[in-house]
């Protein structure tokens, strides 16, 4: 019985350290900061790494070229904004005023090069849109 306990304890220690190691290694690889535009621009240390930025697409300076798979636009934070160039398939829900999340890093020209562009949840967006349309009704 005691020998069994010892064996189990050793097995548990081995397994848990292995998982702990994997988790640590995975965490350093899979980790990305999720920031708004203001916090990103305020801290230079973010600007040297790959991050995820959330914000709203500015109505001005929006250039969409779906056939060429590029979109360039200004991403609005609470008070500041940043230029984004995205290469890839443009999501159906992407448009001026949409809440989006982009992932990528800053290039030498100070433009954020994004390779991932996500628009926020369709159902939530629809509900807001719906509320707006309701208000417009007589």
């Amino acid at each position: 019985m005691n020998r069994m306990r010892t064996k189990l304890a050793i097995a548990a220690i081995v397994l848990i350290s292995a998982v702990g190691y994997l988790a640590l290694a995975g965490a350093s690889k899979g980790w990305v900061y999720y920031l708004d535009v203001d916090s990103y621009l305020a801290d230079a240390s973010y600007q040297t790494q790959r991050v995820r930025l959330a914000g709203r697409v500015d109505e001005q300076d929006l250039n969409l070229a779906p056939a060429k798979l590029t979109a360039s636009f200004q991403l609005l934070g609470p008070t500041r904004k940043i230029g984004i160039t995205y290469h890839g398939v443009i999501p159906d829900t992407f448009k001026a005023g949409a809440d989006v999340v982009v992932e990528g890093r800053l290039d030498d020209q100070g433009v954020f090069q994004a390779d991932t562009l996500m628009t926020k949840c369709a159902s939530k967006y629809q509900a807001e849109e719906h509320a707006k349309r309701l208000e417009q009704k007589p």
Binding site: K29, G30, Y33, Y34
Partner: peptide, 14 residues
Amino acid sequence: ENPGSYGPEFYNHV
């Protein structure tokens, strides 16, 4: 304030 999140790489790794 800016907690960040885990991407698929984290899960795939573990």
